[in-house]
Each structure stands twice: as C-alpha cells, then as structure tokens.
Nucleic acid binder design. Structure first.
Length: 367
DNA sequence: AACGCGGGGTA
DNA sequence: TACCCAGCGTT
C-alpha cells in the first residue's frame, strides 16, 4: 500500500535485484563521457553537483572544465578571491551557489584540513549542500549507500512504481526517497546512482519517453498499466511581473562607471552598470529621475545622453525591460566603500570583472 | 509543506 | 512563450 492508501505494488527482492542488474548493464553501454566523471575526487564531484543544481548538463560542461583548470583543489578555491570565483561562474546563474561553494571551501580547507565530510549529515551542514547533493557526493565519490532524488530520478522512479501522488509534493517525495533508498545496491553505489540519472536523462525523458529502448521496461509499473504519459507532473504556471529599469553608461575620459551589486539586489556580488527602477512616465521625466538616482547612489553627477539600446531580459518571475542610456560625466566625487564598491574602468578591462548578464551585454556593445 | 530564488537554455 | 533543469534555504 502507498502512504495514501491507494494500491501500489510492493517491490520484491527479486524485482529489485533484476532492476539493479539491468540498469548497470545498460549503463555500461550508455555512460556518457562527462568531464566530472574523469575522477571521483570529492572536490570535483562536489563542484560538479553544485553547478548542476537546476542547471542542465550541456550548460555545465564547459563551466566545469574551466573552473577545475583554474581552481584544481579545494585549497585553491578557498584561497581564491570571490571575484575570481564569480568570474568563473558568470553566466551560469543562481550566483548564490558560487558564494556558498566558496564559503564551504574555506570551511573544508581551513577547518577540516582539506578533508571532505563523508556523511550525508555532516555534508548538509555546509552551505549549498542539501539532501540530494550530500547523497550524490557520498555515493559517487565514496561509494557509500546514500539515496539521491533529483529531476531525472523523480521522473524515472515515479514511473517505475507508478506513483499515484504528485511527485513534487511532500507525500510523493517521501515515497520516492524511500524507493531510491530501497533500490540501492550494496556495491557499486557510485555507478548505480549515476546510472539512475543517466537513464532518466537519456531514456525516461519528460515527453515521449523511449520505453522501447528502456532496459527496465519489463519492470516498469507505469508501462504495465499503460499510464506512462499520464504521470507527467502538473506544471504550475508562473505569473510574471513586468519591471522597467534603466542602466547608465557614464563616461569620463574614456572610462565607464560600474558598481558591485549589494546583498539586497539581483546579481549580488556581481558588477553592473548603475541600474535603477524607473517610475516616471516619458523620457524627459525619466532623465531627471535617473540623473538624480545616479547621484544618490554613486555621488556622480551626469547628464543623460541618447538611448543606447533596450534590452529585454527575463529573470525568475520578472520580465525586465532595460533601457540603456549613455550619460556624460559632469562632476561629483565617486562614493565607493567596502559595502558598495564602484570603479571607473576602461571598457577593455570589463572582462576582468564578473558582470551581470545584462551588464555583459552592455559591455559587448561598448566594443 | 510549500515557495521564492531576483537564472538560463531551448523548442 | 512555456517548459525544463543532477535543488537549496526559508516561511
């Protein structure tokens, strides 16, 4: 019986054994050559898992290789400037991950002598490591029998046991963690967990899963019941909020002004051109408003010039229309502090700073 | 037990 | 645009 009382067949020992055998045999033939699979160094596993949080494999690949080349050990990461870490993360999104990774590296390097915790419980005390990432690290790096549950395995396991509950809600999640635990082999846990994700990713896909090519088709309860397509999780539609903002390219003798985003704003820790919400209607009023806000935030007085470009940018539930203006420096003394740094920079030096997505787009416009 | 995160890529 | 992604931290 499932937790909600609906019928859900028990997983017999023979069924589980058969599943493990078939899955591992399939993985032997279909394992992708991914850069984080070159070794089981826990540092590499950890970095890759954090990068892969809510981020697709294809996106992470290049970032991972560049990151490992620049910071090959946890000590290198711990000793690095946050600016460098963010620069390596630029474009990957969810930048809190990069700051958490950096903070956790300092703990491991300085307080744990470079030795990663080997238990799920201890790993979860580090910032940015939740139940999935902790389970992934101990199973993949140490072959310890810890279950994992993420996008691929949620889908795979939900179909495998024909889960009645919504797999995104807590009752369904609880059941799936239990299944993930129950299926674990005693040996080869590292390969087993990676094989689960690989199968979910390559065969048990969200739409039109390739059941004909699935090594465990004969064991799949959803397949037997003919309800594979019906088990798709219900997607809740997001309601977007439109925002209007403006960014200023303030020029002073060949240099431009950028500032670092603070903890209360989007792209915390990254740098950006001075950027403000626009409340006024009409370009004339907006000009006065922006000049005034620029002085308020940076201490710099400037006169608004022509519109450089309008950038449409979506981020989480916001849809931003960003007007980018040229602005000519008039005077004032730059306010720059530890809390709120700002610098004048030659456009050619913008590559050395981690910029927000829109900041990078503007930087490219400047040539 | 949900839900926001001030992401980003893709069909 | 909608949908998806090797989730986490917070309320």
């Amino acid at each position: 019986m499932a937790t909600d009382g609906t019928f859900e067949p028990e997983l017999t020992s023979a069924w589980k054994q058969s599943f493990r055998r078939k899955l591992l045999a399939w993985y032997k033939q279909h394992e992708r050559d991914l850069p984080w699979r070159k070794s089981r160094d826990p540092y590499r596993v950890w970095v890759s898992e954090v990068m892969l949080q809510q981020t697709q494999v294809a996106t992470v690949r290049g970032y991972f290789e560049r990151f490992m080349a620049a910071l090959p050990t946890v000590h290198d990461l711990a000793a690095a400037e946050e600016q460098q870490v963010l620069r390596l993360w630029e474009g990957l999104g969810y930048y809190r991950r990069a700051r958490g990774l950096h903070a956790a590296a300092k703990v491991v390097s300085n307080e744990l002598g470079g030795e990663f915790p080997t238990s799920v419980e201890e790993l979860m005390k580090l910032p940015g490591i939740g139940r999935y990432t902790a389970g992934a690290i101990v199973s993949i790096a140490y072959d310890k029998p810890a279950p994992i549950l993420e996008a691929n395995t949620i889908r795979l396991l939900a179909r495998l046991v024909a889960l009645r509950d919504d797999p995104t809600r807590s009752a369904g999640q609880k059941r799936l963690w239990q299944v993930a635990e129950e299926l674990l082999p005693r040996k080869e846990v590292s390969r087993f967990n990676q094989a689960l994700m690989e199968l979910g990713s390559l065969v048990c896909t969200p739409r039109t899963p390739k059941c004909d090519a699935c090594p465990v088709e004969s064991l799949c309860h959803a397949r037997q019941l003919g309800i594979v397509e019906e088990l798709l999780p219900t997607t809740k539609k997001t309601t977007y909020t439109d925002l209007r903002e403006a960014a200023l390219v303030v020029r002073r003798s060949g240099k431009v002004l950028i500032r670092q985003c603070g903890p209360e704003e989007r792209w915390t820790g990254l740098w950006d051109f001075p950027r403000f919400g626009v409340e006024s209607e009409g370009p004339l009023f907006a000009a006065r408003e922006l000049e005034s806000k620029l002085t308020e935030v940076t201490g710099i007085r400037a006169s608004l010039g022509p519109l450089l470009k309008t950038i449409k940018h979506g981020v989480t539930r916001y849809r931003i229309t960003l007007d980018c203006y040229e602005a000519k420096h008039q005077g004032g003394r730059l306010k720059s502090s530890k809390d709120s740094p700002a610098v004048w920079l030659a456009p050619s030096d913008l590559g050395e700073y981690p910029l927000s997505t829109t900041g990078r787009k503007i930087a490219k416009l400047l040539g």
